[in-house]
Design a protein around this nucleic acid. Structure first.
Lengths: 161, 161
DNA sequence: ATTGGATAGTTCATTTACGAACAGTCCTTG
DNA sequence: CAAGGACTGTTCGTAAATGAACTATCCAAT
């Protein structure tokens, strides 16, 4: 009894749970973002920049790992709406220095405290896990991520992202 | 020493790993799908129907949990391309009975064995986990999924999905 | 037998993120 | 110091998934 189940069975169970979590997360991000008139990339960008005082667009891209075009458009929208200040870096005019405007800083604080916001929700979800559960989850996810990144797909030094 | 880290720190670590896995998975699904001239919803539908001999569109929707419109369009494409046979259910003409055509069954087998396909890759990723790691991962994901589903978002008995 | 509501699926317009090509800046090397 | 190549970011056309409104069918209640 209790022989190891076939791996395609395990995979599909994993995928099912994984997509389910993903769907919920997406729903929440989308909700919180659109309540504040932001697209998802815009929301991600804003929340990532905020904890640092300033940041280049390049650094932001390395963290968020989204296509350059997507990021560029997101940033542009944020600048237009005056959440974000953007200016070429002093001694390398190719790069863009990004920092929140005062308005942007206010928005960030508001969102962070907003009842039922993405951040609040995900924080409380994580809080229901034991320390050990959390560590295990993180390390397993990390393990899978690494495995997948190293697999076949030739990271054809893509000009995007 | 070793006091519990603040939960928003933990959340962002979790999210980072989670999105990273998600990005990889998406890349693989997209690659495998488009190599076979399928959209992602089409790929998902095909792979879900295949193990059952037949299935109603409603049942499929309950499993995949994607918006009705997305599913409907995916199915329609599969029928057009003759991967899938579709006909109204005998004694409830609102529902649609779906089953693979012979051509579709061949495609399914081909994809399942395809070197570097999504299925192959995710299977081998899962195989690198110990039995315990896998069980823990699954149960934690499941736990988070349930938590998120039960949270605030009023599932305003959406007419979609 | 009729009507109102629920259920299953489709249509269509819109949004969104994306890839590919491009433009500007910087750095090396002859 | 000119030219080629690498790097950062932008523009633009396209494809994909979605929500809202709709059609068709079924069922329950009067």
């Amino acid at each position: 009894m209790s022989s190891t189940p076939p791996s395609d069975m395990k995979s599909s169970k994993f995928l099912h749970s994984f997509w389910q979590v993903n769907r919920s997360l997406m729903r929440y991000v989308h909700k919180t973002a659109s309540e504040n008139d932001l697209s998802i990339p815009q929301y991600s960008a804003l929340m990532t920049i905020a904890p640092h005082k300033e940041m280049t667009q390049k650094e932001l891209g390395e963290i968020l790992q989204m296509p350059k075009s997507t990021l560029s458009q997101a940033i542009d929208g944020l600048v237009q709406a005056d959440w974000l200040h953007r200016q070429p870096v002093q001694d390398n005019r190719r790069e863009m220095q990004l920092m929140l405007t005062e308005k942007g800083a206010v928005l960030f604080k508001k969102v962070k405290l907003q009842k039922g916001s993405f951040h609040q929700t995900i924080d409380s979800a994580i809080d229901t896990l034991s320390e050990k559960q959390f560590e295990d989850l993180l390390s397993t996810l990390h393990h899978i991520a690494e495995f997948l990144e190293n697999e076949t797909i030739i990271k054809e030094n893509s000009q995007n992202d």
